[in-house]
Design a protein around this nucleic acid. Structure first.
Lengths: 298, 298
DNA sequence: CCGGTGTTGAAGAAATTATTTCAGAACCGG
DNA sequence: CCGGTTCTGAAATAATTTCTTCAACACCGG
């Protein structure tokens, strides 16, 4: 990973295009021809090889070298690196001008860096999510003709738990397969053909989870997988895969996007089953009232 | 007279980004890693030399060659040329407005509505988060001089679990107080003055949680509260409160923002304790290696 | 636990790109 | 038209990049 080096000595403010225009009259005839060609379809025209750039402008390669050196670069590769850097800024900035999230904190505060990364993850995840798969998953989970089983791994256990909790409210026939337990065979016993197994599996992918998925599949279960963008080996056995971006500035991966997708699925399922769900929720509320576990207000 | 030749014959197919996403599951592990890196800040990341691209993605150059060939290119230069062509088109008509999140789905699809709401929640939460409190919380949790106890409610149990899991890796002296259990008095026994109790409490606020917080406070524990914007009654006893927006188009509230804040705190704590954390993580990894619970790759 | 299969990257060969050199072309003022 | 100066690109050279080979490795199924 080299490349983004030594950018400090020359005017970091002006773009290459600006510099070309500004110093246009210092250039020689062949160089002007080249500059014109570069500006013609800036900056893409400068991103191919020096050979192609020269040919495109109708000048020789030494002319190209001489001109970029006049602009203050050590050589063509350095010039091109700067061009790419500019392009990167130009591409990413117009899309999102929201630089800081916690306005009171500096840009470099972890709150802003982390949130920035997560928002990026959300963008990318949503951009490539397969809507048809999403809808299919919601349909599957809303269908009370079949049972739903949920399983997570070491890290994703919390998510599995969360899904289980809410699904229990939405509909009957939901079970949580305890992670780390050796009770899997028993859970498999209860898995009928057509049942849906929701699997959470992110790095590092767990052998036990894979095994369970395979066996469930063998029993005729349909498998829905929530995973990260690398794709867990369970994907090979899954009917539907929902994959998320999880990279953040931390020693771990982020499960925020997974949670977002999960909640969205829940919302979609709830929409589909609202008639039953409403009635179930009312009964649940009334039970809570009787137990006085919760405060009525505040 | 030169230059603008032979641009039309190449399949008017899909962009490279689309092809990468579409055929993602045909790719091998290293190739997926590469594809991810390429999409990360597309297409700029693909425009440097094959060496740099490979290094950036953390794979070898042969992997790059193999993948672009899988995509139907004769070699890397040809792939790059296509990337430049695409870029040229994209630059010339900069109608790159970002209205919806899942571009393939209609605006009114739950994916877009829900995500829109969550992003709004993130904005509002971050805008009003108290950075000083946040930093103080990170400091408290990073301080190994005192123990940390974590407790959640019916819904937030999953989050408490998640925090506990990661804090366990970061530092010693972390305990999870089982929700719904009647064992609280025992947990209180283990709570020394100066210890930190992290409480999760969102609507509907739980009486038992409040009780626990009060008693812990009475024993000299310091209390950190994660809650929603309405503020749980625990706030009155808490030293630091981190509150989140949680409204979404669903019958429930969203815990995505809570999760985001939680992970950010974890990242901040990890930054502060990196010296010990690193060593602990390495030991953990080595134990995992020995158990073969996880796959080495893929 | 053990070969078979597919994936991976180190290393080196081949191809291409970038730089330097230098002879001649173009210009310029006289 | 000429001597001096600057500019230019062909060609040689240097540096890099790209591609290929192959042994090591992980995973899989028995």
């Amino acid at each position: 990973m080299q490349g983004v080096q030594g950018v400090c000595e020359r005017d970091p403010q002006k773009t290459i295009a600006e510099r070309l225009q500004q110093r246009f009259d210092e250039l020689t005839r062949a160089e002007r021809q080249l500059a014109g060609s570069l500006l013609e379809n800036y900056p893409v025209s400068g991103l191919s090889s020096i050979t192609a750039v020269a040919a495109q402008a109708g000048v020789s390669t030494p002319t190209v070298v001489r001109m970029v050196q006049k602009l203050g670069f050590r050589g063509f590769p350095e010039f091109q690196a700067e061009l790419r850097r500019e392009l990167g800024e130009r591409i990413s900035n117009p899309i999102d001008k929201h630089d800081t999230w916690a306005a009171k904190a500096p840009d470099q505060h972890i709150l802003n860096r982390f949130t920035e990364a997560v928002i990026g993850n959300i963008r990318q995840t949503l951009a490539q999510v397969d809507t048809a798969s999403f809808d299919a998953v919601a349909d599957l989970l809303a269908d009370t003709a079949h049972g739903v089983h949920v399983v997570g791994g070491r890290i994703t256990r919390a998510l599995a738990d969360y899904l289980f909790l809410h699904m229990q409210v939405v509909r009957p026939g939901v079970s949580l397969i305890q992670s780390l337990a050796n009770a899997w065979p028993h859970d498999l016993l209860n898995m009928a053909p057509g049942d849906v197994l929701v699997v959470f599996d992110v790095r590092r992918y767990e052998n036990a989870t894979l095994k369970l998925a395979e066996m469930a599949r063998g029993q005729g279960a349909r498998i829905v997988l929530f995973t990260d963008q690398w794709g867990s080996p369970v994907a090979a056995h899954a009917d539907h895969v929902l994959s998320c971006r999880i990279a953040v500035p931390s020693a771990w991966d982020s499960n925020v996007v997974l949670m977002l997708l999960l909640e969205t699925v829940l919302a979609a399922v709830q929409e589909r089953t609202w008639a039953q769900t409403r009635e179930r929720m009312e009964r649940l509320e009334s039970m809570f009232d009787k137990t006085r576990l919760f405060r009525k207000f505040t």
